[in-house]
């Protein structure tokens, strides 16, 4: 199985919707590769810029409640994947977005609001924050400088199987006629 670790992009807002992740005008693209350059381009969030190193170099996003609400467009997780993101950690996801992540073999990890709050308080102003996910123990570790915090998370057996298989299509091919 692939490794889920990397630098962190903080998106400090709830209800970031799929129009903000990838605007509808790009839904005319059939090729996933065309979506990457437009990831989060309409996101109005203080301190956020798609020109920042933090945005360009990260592969894990940490955010708050109801992430990915709105449209069913799988273009949203595709755009993240095209930009090298494989893990999104939030206090909650919209159902379709979350399933789209797992269906593509990506991780959508839900932590409690209290744990998300702790991460934002302790790490969001640090430089070079990283996350490493340990799928075997269902824990993730946030690190920066000489600080380190580990959090447990819950992932359903089904979602874990999708991640291990590389996605729902791969899993369904093995298990359903």
């Amino acid at each position: 199985m692939r490794k889920f670790e990397g630098k962190v992009l903080f998106l400090d807002r709830s209800d970031i919707n799929t129009d903000e992740i990838i605007p509808a005008k790009y839904l005319t693209e059939i090729e996933k590769s065309a979506l990457g350059p437009h990831l989060l381009e309409d996101l109005n969030l203080e301190g956020f810029s798609t020109d920042s190193d933090e945005f360009k170099q990260s592969s894990v996003a940490i955010t708050r409640a109801n992430f990915g609400c709105g449209s069913s467009r799988e273009h949203a997780p595709w755009a993240f994947a095209e930009c090298g993101y494989h893990t999104i950690i939030a206090s909650g996801f919209a159902r379709i977005f979350r399933q789209n992540m797992f269906n593509g073999g990506l991780l959508a990890i839900e932590l409690t609001e209290a744990d998300i709050e702790k991460i934002f308080n302790k790490y969001s102003s640090c430089q070079d924050v990283t996350v490493a996910v340990d799928m075997d123990s269902s824990t993730l570790t946030v690190s920066a400088d000489d600080q380190k915090s580990t959090f447990e998370f819950v992932i359903s057996g089904f979602d874990r199987a999708l991640v291990e298989a590389g996605g729902w299509l791969e899993y369904a091919d093995e298990n359903y006629d």
Binding site: S72, R73, E74, P77, I96, Q99, N100, N103, G104, S156, F158, G167, W168, L169, A172, Y176, D177
Partner: peptide, 20 residues
Amino acid sequence: AGVGTTDLEVGILKGVCAFR
């Protein structure tokens, strides 16, 4: 229920979809 493209693809091919 609304679903993404991968769920749709499996639905088209196999007539199934997973839900909690």
